[in-house]
């Protein structure tokens, strides 16, 4: 019932509708697009180095003769995958840590929040930058874990303070007075009642993870060659951006579109889930 209402509101929301259409289109491009293109991303065309977009190479070629269309779509697949996985892990972590800290209070709260504080103080950029290139190459899953490990703390603080107010709600007290164990109360009454916050957070985490990946890859600290992501492509593209703009424009444009569409959905969700908004 409620989810129906939310969905209806979501699709009445222009922002969210455009965002959703754009995202579906981008995902289709990323995963179906490669079958339409003439070249595979691993192929090198030794006849065309740094050639401008043409009928043969739609988006031009790179300095080693790769078809930019194929490479960029390959990079986008990776970026989308990383975004989704990081968002899932970090929102989940934030929900669990925040809810336990907020509900139990006392020393549980102090220890967990101290950990949060420490992680916030640690320069995440530096840690990921040092560790990630030293991971076995190709094992980008570790990179996902690292990125997620440093992106849940702020949300967990929000979850914690929401939990602290939910804890005082009468239906939570009622459950306690019925003799239901506390961990069960957290999963049955507290986390579901924060689902709107968590959904929004997860959505926005997708876009910040995509940006984060690109940012680290920009300096060579993220996805390692020969694998590619939008970030690594933008990094190589920006070096030659004045002379060979297509190298920069295509990956950067897709990155911006991807982030924009996810953000639009996130903001639309916020409106749809908030009963107070009247859009």
């Amino acid at each position: 019932m409620r989810s129906k209402v939310v969905l209806r509101r979501l699709f009445r929301n222009n922002q969210a509708r455009y965002g959703f259409v754009a995202l579906v289109a981008l995902v289709l491009v990323a995963y179906v697009g490669p079958y339409i293109g003439k070249y595979d991303w691993t192929e090198k065309d030794f006849m065309a180095f740094l050639s401008a977009p043409s009928a043969d190479h739609w988006w031009g070629t790179t300095s080693i003769g790769q078809d930019l269309y194929a490479v960029t779509l390959r990079g986008m697949q990776k970026s989308i995958l990383i975004g989704l996985m990081v968002a899932l892990i970090s929102t989940g972590l934030a929900a669990i840590v925040g809810a336990f800290a907020g509900y139990f209070g006392g020393w549980v709260d102090r220890v967990l929040m101290w950990g949060v504080e420490l992680l916030l103080v640690l320069p995440s950029f530096l840690l990921i930058a040092i560790i990630s290139p030293r991971l076995k190459s190709g094992n980008w899953l570790w990179f996902v874990v690292l990125l997620a490990a440093f992106s849940w703390m702020i949300t967990s603080r929000v979850v914690r303070s929401m939990t602290m107010s939910l804890r005082e709600r009468e239906y939570v007290q009622a459950a306690l007075y019925m003799g239901i164990p506390r961990w069960k109360i957290i999963f049955r009454h507290i986390v579901p009642n924060m689902s709107s916050l968590l959904i929004i957070d997860a959505t926005l985490n997708v876009s910040s993870a995509i940006i984060g990946e690109a940012a680290l890859s920009f300096f060579g600290f993220g996805i390692q060659p020969p694998d590619v992501s939008l970030g690594t492509l933008i990094a190589t593209g920006s070096d030659n951006a004045t002379g060979y703009p297509w190298l920069f424009v295509f990956p950067a444009g897709l990155l911006v579109l991807l982030v924009l569409s996810v953000n639009l959905i996130g903001d639309g969700l916020r409106d749809a889930l908030d009963p107070g908004s009247n859009s």
Partner: peptide, 16 residues
């Protein structure tokens, strides 16, 4: 919204 979707390294490069 558009500005927030443009990462700073893209924005800075575009400006340059």
């Amino acid at each position: 919204f558009v500005l927030m979707a443009i990462p700073v390294f893209v924005l800075a490069t575009l400006l340059a």
